[in-house]
């Protein structure tokens, strides 16, 4: 999640820079998304001292749900307690993205085939698109937004940068979450084993050589602690 350090307070400075460069007002899709995400993030983390308020502050307004198909779930997401009323059909991925504004996990295929939605539940990697949100009741979820230690990137995030392990970046949050688990499982012991245990994460840009190199590099750093 974008921290407050690198985002202008209200997006104004960013807009001013663009105006200065191009001579007229432009707001790219990316900066609009970043602005939205930053606002949502602020809503989540500003209230961290008041857990009871956290979930309600962060959530988008849900669509109406018939009472017999509504559920209330409580879980811990990136260390924060979250409670939400959901439609029973909701996937964990949609809960994260559409209700909690945690848009790091991506919707690729929405059928468990591409790995872009990978998150950890109780320390194990799962496809959040095929996980009913109802199933995270009482569990701990870790997404890419909760991986870094403040401004200090996780060794796997740094390794992906160092090894150019992406082009478009859409699969990257899922790749990184899968890769962190791959190392923790003890499956990052050779290039062959990394390829086998990362085969659930598709990269349409074909950055696989960089991805394998990044995981090998990060694995040695993670094991050194």
């Amino acid at each position: 999640m974008t921290g407050s350090d690198d985002m202008p307070e209200d997006g104004k400075a960013d807009t001013d820079n663009r105006t200065a460069r191009s001579g007229f007002f432009t707001l790219s899709r990316r900066s609009a998304l970043e602005g939205g995400a930053a606002i949502a993030a602020a809503a989540i983390f500003a209230d961290a001292s008041s857990p009871a308020k956290t979930a309600t502050a962060a959530q988008s307004a849900p669509l109406p749900v018939a009472s017999d198909q509504a559920l209330t779930i409580s879980a811990t997401i990136n260390g924060q307690p979250v409670a939400a009323e959901i439609d029973a059909r909701t996937s964990l991925l949609d809960l994260l993205r559409e209700r909690l504004a945690l848009t790091g996990a991506k919707k690729g295929c929405d059928h468990g085939q591409c790995g872009a939605c990978t998150v950890h539940v109780d320390g194990r990697r799962v496809a959040s698109c095929l996980t009913l949100a109802a199933k995270i009741e009482g569990r701990e979820v870790l997404t890419i937004e909760g991986l870094s230690d403040g401004a200090a990137l996780h060794p796997m995030q740094q390794a992906f940068i160092d090894h150019d392990a992406l082009q478009c970046g859409y699969c990257t949050p899922g790749q990184i979450m899968a890769a962190v688990a791959c190392v923790a499982e003890g499956n990052a012991t050779s290039k062959e084993r990394i390829r086998e245990y990362m085969s659930g994460n598709i990269c349409r840009c074909g950055a696989y050589v960089g991805i394998v190199a990044a995981i090998e590099d990060a694995a040695s750093k993670m094991e050194r602690g």
Partner: peptide, 9 residues
């Protein structure tokens, strides 16, 4: 069978 993500689920 499957991927590690799916085998965990």
């Amino acid at each position: 069978a499957a991927s590690q993500q799916l085998r965990n689920m």
